[in-house]
Computed example of a mutant assay.
Amino acid sequence: MSHATEGFPLDAPMHGSLLPAAAPRESTSHVIAEALRAAIVDGTLAPGAPLRQDAIARHFSVSAIPVREALRQLESEGWARAAVHKGATVAPLSADEAREIYEIRSALESLALGLAIPNHSAATLREAAELCRAAELEADPSLYVARNAAFHMSLYAPAGRPQLEDMIELLHRRGERYLRLKFGLPSYKGESDTEHAALLDAVERRDIAAAQSLVVSHLLGTGELLHRFLTERAREEAALAHQPKPRGRRPRVTTGS
């Protein structure tokens, strides 16, 4: 990525627009937001990286208006931060935020499960089982995030509570970067798959109490794991930053004969 100094990394010079010429503004801003979100998730845009409107607009060959809308959306979801006279930057990873996201998810998803389980049918259970298996087999981190969310949402869809579903989906989006960290720890990915299978089994048995207990334990455990991981990483980075830099060997001074 060669243009990081422009505030948005570009793979190569652009030739024409990346977006459909007739795309309405809302669709354009959505595409830009999704692209920025993907770049943040895969690490192309690191925490603290500037998100300059002019650079992003040039990259997508659009005006500043849909870019502003995309950045506003990312800020509302916790992906970006805006400061007066400084513009937007990629939001930093926060141990406390990660834990809180999963604490809130545990409460909302437990509620959604209790409402959904009596309404599950053979068809919805079959779909949930297929999504659970797809998440277990997924090896690509970015795709795993999407498959994980799809499995969870399939468990709650029969609740018929669209506002509750929207709130849960928003928290899933805010937690995508953090879930990717967990995926990077293979043993914990395996534990998640096992927990998903147990949760699905409880839903299939229509055991509301067991399913709610399992989803709360699963989500709170993930939140605590991420909090611990990020706290330890921040401590290590702080220790490295305070280490004295090794002094280079002083150049030899030679005199002419």
Score class of each variant (00 low, 15 high):
residue 204 E to M: 09
residue 257 S to V: 07
residue 115 L to T: 06
residue 234 A to V: 09
residue 245 K to W: 07
residue 8 F to R: 10
residue 154 S to I: 00
residue 251 P to S: 05
residue 32 I to H: 09
residue 216 V to H: 08
residue 114 G to A: 08
residue 104 I to T: 15
residue 234 A to D: 11
residue 36 L to T: 06
residue 48 G to Y: 03
residue 142 S to P: 00
residue 93 L to M: 11
residue 131 L to A: 02
residue 128 A to R: 04
residue 157 A to Q: 09
residue 9 P to Q: 12
residue 82 A to W: 12
residue 38 A to S: 13
residue 202 A to C: 02
residue 103 E to C: 02
residue 27 S to F: 06
residue 182 K to F: 06
residue 207 D to R: 06
residue 23 A to F: 09
residue 9 P to C: 11
residue 64 A to L: 15
residue 249 R to P: 01
residue 227 H to N: 13
residue 75 E to Q: 14
residue 133 R to D: 09
residue 15 H to A: 12
residue 102 Y to F: 10
residue 82 A to T: 13
residue 104 I to S: 07
residue 253 V to S: 14
residue 151 F to W: 09
residue 245 K to S: 12
residue 47 P to Q: 00
residue 205 R to K: 12
residue 159 A to P: 01
residue 3 H to M: 14
residue 1 M to F: 13
residue 146 A to I: 09
residue 186 P to H: 07
residue 72 R to D: 03
residue 34 E to R: 15
residue 145 V to L: 14
residue 43 G to D: 08
residue 84 V to H: 06
residue 191 E to N: 02
residue 228 R to A: 14
residue 186 P to K: 10
residue 20 P to T: 10
residue 33 A to V: 04
residue 51 L to G: 04
residue 30 H to T: 08
residue 128 A to L: 06
residue 240 L to V: 11
residue 172 H to T: 01
residue 244 P to C: 14
residue 18 L to Q: 07
residue 143 L to N: 02
residue 30 H to K: 02
residue 31 V to S: 04
residue 92 P to M: 01
residue 67 V to F: 07
residue 64 A to P: 00
residue 110 S to G: 13
residue 220 L to C: 10
residue 43 G to Y: 11
residue 40 I to H: 00
residue 237 E to W: 03
residue 184 G to S: 11
residue 76 S to W: 04
residue 235 R to C: 12
residue 162 P to W: 08
residue 126 R to M: 04
residue 163 Q to Y: 08
residue 19 L to F: 09
residue 62 V to R: 15
residue 137 L to A: 13
